[in-house]
Nucleic acid binder design. Structure first.
Lengths: 208, 208
DNA sequence: TCCAGAGTTGAATCCTGGTTCAGGTTTCAG
DNA sequence: CTGAAACCTGAACCAGGATTCAACTCTGGA
């Protein structure tokens, strides 16, 4: 899908490319893998096709990755980073946490709509690389919880159970992303974000 | 895992058992499949092992299902039904919709904690049988939306975007189920449900 | 310029596991 | 009782696809 800016700060292993040519090939393979897995899913996706998409021989694939699962893991880490890098700035730019929530959801839905394949990869990691999946969501949730608690310190949100709130809001966003991002992109993201924002801010209780 | 009460109202196909013996075997296979897929996941799970768990020959499996995917689909439909049958009564028994939301989440978390494998099956269906997965969530969401709208009619909740709300709340529950049901069952379900209830009812806005 | 190491190549190997099938055995309506 | 339909059995077949490997070509530092 999208070209991977830097194949992440991959802590040099034996398979880390040492020359310019190598780095270029690695990037090619990583992008090809994202396309392949995004389109066919992990189990339907094949190394042969990844190599083909990357215009590289099968053997070259194994110069950079130990196995099919290894690329997949590398990909998950990469996607995870990309999503955050895209969304976080919007949250930070907002005047307060609740406005940030809304801006963040908008940005997230945008990202999902333009990267449907990547979305699938992260989701599928739950069954291919549970630990990577868990790490992704636990990271996000913890960031969320901290951020909310700080907002509480500034009087922007009420007191409450930060962990539960973080997971709840995260789940909300993920499902809205699935429904209104991946499956159905007819409605404008702003509209969805606004409705969700209203729900998160005031809840369902009838107006007093 | 749990014995399947009735292999659902399977609309008689060519593979539908015609004798008592047949029905019994089908149930055996279905339950064995639930165990196998629950424990190993779809791709790791094998027909041979399913047959073994059911104490049945591989060939018998194919007497009742056309393929590996076919059992899996049958299973998803069955689980989907089971979850709803377990949770809905709690919601209906509650005095009002918001209390029902809380009771429903409690019941859901309970169910998840005692059926972790089944939970996994539904989730994995997203990649094995997208349509079945979609159907499951769309059904639940629609039920939710309708229910909320009726509650609005009774003055129990404020007005709003029913679809967005339904998907948001559903996502919330699913993620809370994942985090506090499957991954971490240390905290009492009531506590989680209470916190979530507070969030859904009043939102995050600071107390006026 | 030179060459050791870094990269590249793709046919061949290997293995897993879904699916088939050719015979039995059991059930049950008539 | 009886035979046709239902069921059961599990070894054998086979396709798909991950991984290996031995021979070859670039790259870049000295």
């Amino acid at each position: 899908m999208t070209a991977t800016p830097q194949p992440s700060e991959a802590l040099a292993t034996a398979k880390t490319p040492r020359t310019e040519r190598g780095r270029k090939t690695l990037r090619l393979i990583l992008d090809a893998a994202a396309e392949e897995f995004g389109a066919r899913g992990y189990h339907e996706g094949s190394i042969a096709r990844i190599a083909q998409r990357a215009s590289v021989a099968i053997g070259s694939f194994y110069t950079y990755f130990d196995s099919k699962e290894a690329v997949f893991r590398a990909l998950v880490a990469d996607m995870s980073r990309q999503v955050r890098e895209h969304v976080v700035p919007f949250i930070l730019a907002a005047p307060d946490r609740l406005a940030g929530e809304r801006a963040g959801l908008s940005a997230y839905l945008d990202f999902v709509r333009t990267h449907k394949a990547l979305y699938r990869i992260i989701d599928e990691s739950a069954f291919v690389a549970e630990d990577a999946y868990r790490r992704h969501y636990v990271d996000v949730a913890d960031g969320y919880a901290t951020s909310l608690e700080q907002a509480f310190g500034r009087g922007e949100v009420s007191d409450g159970d930060w962990q539960v709130r973080a997971w709840a809001i995260m789940g909300m966003n993920v499902f809205l992303g699935l429904k209104f991002g991946v499956w159905d992109d007819a409605r404008p993201v702003e509209e969805i974000a606004a409705a969700a924002h209203a729900l998160i801010t005031n809840g369902l209780a009838p107006r007093a």
